[in-house]
Design a protein around this nucleic acid. Sequence first.
RNA 1: GCCCCCAUCGUCUAGAGGCCUAGGACGCCACCCUUUCAAGGUGGAGAUCAGGGGUUCGAAUCCCCUUGGGGGCACCA
Length: 661
Amino acid sequence: MAAHVGHRPGLGGVGRGGGPPPGCDLAAGRGPPRRDARAPRDLPPRQSDRRRDGAPPARRNPARPGRSWQPGDDLPDHRGGRGGRRPALVSRGTRPDARSRDQRPGAVRVARLAHPRGSPRAGDARAPAGGSHPGAARRGRPGPLPPRPGHRAPVTSEGAAVRVRIAPSPTGPLHIGTARTALFNYLFARHSGGTFVLRLEDTDVERSTAAFEQDILDGLRWLGLGWDEGPGLAGEPDHGPYGPYRQMERLARYKAISDRLLAADQAYYCYCTAAELDAERKRLEAAHLPPRYSGRCAHLTAAERAAFEAEGRRPAIRFRIQPGIVAFDDLVRGHVEIDASALGGDLAIVRADGTPLYHFCVVVDDAAMKISHVIRGEDHLSNTPKHILLFRALGEAEPLFAHLPLILNPDRTKMSKRKSQTAVDDYINEGFIREGLLNYLALLGWSTGSEEEILGLDEIAARFSLEHVQKGGAVFDRERLEWLNGQWIRRLAPVELIDRLRPFVQAEATAGRIDRMPADAELLPLVPLVQERLPVLGAIGDLVDFLFADRLDVDRALLVPKRWDRPTTLAGLIAARTAIARVGATAFEPEGLEEPLRALAEEHGWKAGDLFMAIRVAVTGRTATPPLFQTLVALGRERVLARLDSAIGLLTDAAGEGGKG
RNA sequence: GCCCCCAUCGUCUAGAGGCCUAGGACGCCACCCUUUCAAGGUGGAGAUCAGGGGUUCGAAUCCCCUUGGGGGCACCA
């Protein structure tokens, strides 16, 4: 983290939206959410206004602008033309012996048959207008708006709406893996004209904080992954018909449902203490047995319960895991079967303090929120049978599941904070732009099936399909991300680039590396000089600092070009100074400078490159800069002459000190 | 330990039995362009498709085994 501090703009506005850059659909929705770039630990509580730029508060509404879906549209369904089938039927109806030749669900094969030849994109032509097509209906979309009244989810021909969700836990800053999962869900929703729901899983009261919650919401909005339904910000109402969207605000529902399970004897009170459970687990581990709850409290008598209560023990609630094989057809992995006996015994669903546990909440909420497709990381694959059992116990239809490959550290373990940079904030603060990050993330574990790769969000949504999701984990390749980011930076319109660069330039000023914050009018002419030299926006300092710094530290050793010695350099700089001084203020243009300096080199038999390098270092202090003559112009005649003078002085003073040559 | 998942250049990937002498991209190397750095262009190195068995006239592709890797097994999410 510390390594990136220098690049922190330290203020909102990194992602100011201007007009969409050419070819960039990502910016189609005007006013993309802005991001406060401060480190999470610095984030103030949700209540306070963190914004400093005076933009209208409406922006804080998480609501994504309305989309123009067509309720009657025949939605392209990844399962083929049979969309709309209730998810549960697929899982329940699939017998273990009915697996298809390839391991993918038969439904996927149907999809292929549905488009026997012709490009897989044939289906895209049927995408709902404005749902995922670049341009068109979305182009004129306003910035985030309050909930659209009468919002109805699009519905497939058979009546089942595509509803997906991202359910982050505010126990840390937005993780790159969460961002990718959100992206895939968003893409799936977009592609199918479905609804993208955001739900906060904040039942881990110990670790959840409002600051992390804010960070996650800001991060998703910064990426442009707006949600159709989700929590409102402090004081604002939730947006969507299935709220609240914060689990801690749904406690009464969990209570009601756990009571129901208790009443039906599908769950029971468990009085084991953490210490007892721990000891049990250790014993099993020592015996090389898988950790599992013994079921000690599964059949307590009323008297035994009363005795525990009298001891002052507070019970947790456990869900009875029924024996048997649980099977489901994963949309990316195909048929999966897991023996319920391998699930670790009866599952705790409510803590002794009454707060509900993850596996319980997800299922209750996914059912309540009518989630049709659960698209999440592979780390949840083994947990899925628990969820399915819970759905059944609740009498709810099971959603379809799709488990995405994990993002990996270079050593191929699950991407972690310890081994990789995982916070989206850190990437933002380095100057990755949303277009680059999104494009990269989309291609991590998914491909178009063709060789296209530089694609905007809308273009990706138009092509997205779970069929092309990879099964194996993908190593996060920062080099490739930088390349892609550079591609998108180069595609930005000049004013847009300035907008995005501003916070980074400001950070240079704040850090004292430049003496003042330059005006846009000064920045604009610099765009052609820097645009193709920025793998990340944070690299701007190295490129232009010398333009806005009054004092320049020049390394005497650097001043002498490789093929030159000190006297030659001194002579070269003096001659160059004279030649440049002769160029009048009005002729101080790249061509007006290059001509006499080339002539000068020729006259002395110097290689032009050597002369130019000496001048470059003298006026910028660096060996790598934007093109010299444009740089001289940007610097201005007076400063160029002054810096040449001081370089000449430096070499003269060094005369007796045995410098190079 | 038990269960589950996965396996094509270093990395991300294309690949749906013959279009594969395995394609593209990042990175790397060389050359071109060039005042440096970039960007761009051209070319190159780089994968016996983890290994072994099948099935088939034919396998990267289908099946089995092995090996390797990963994930999960909480009163975390």
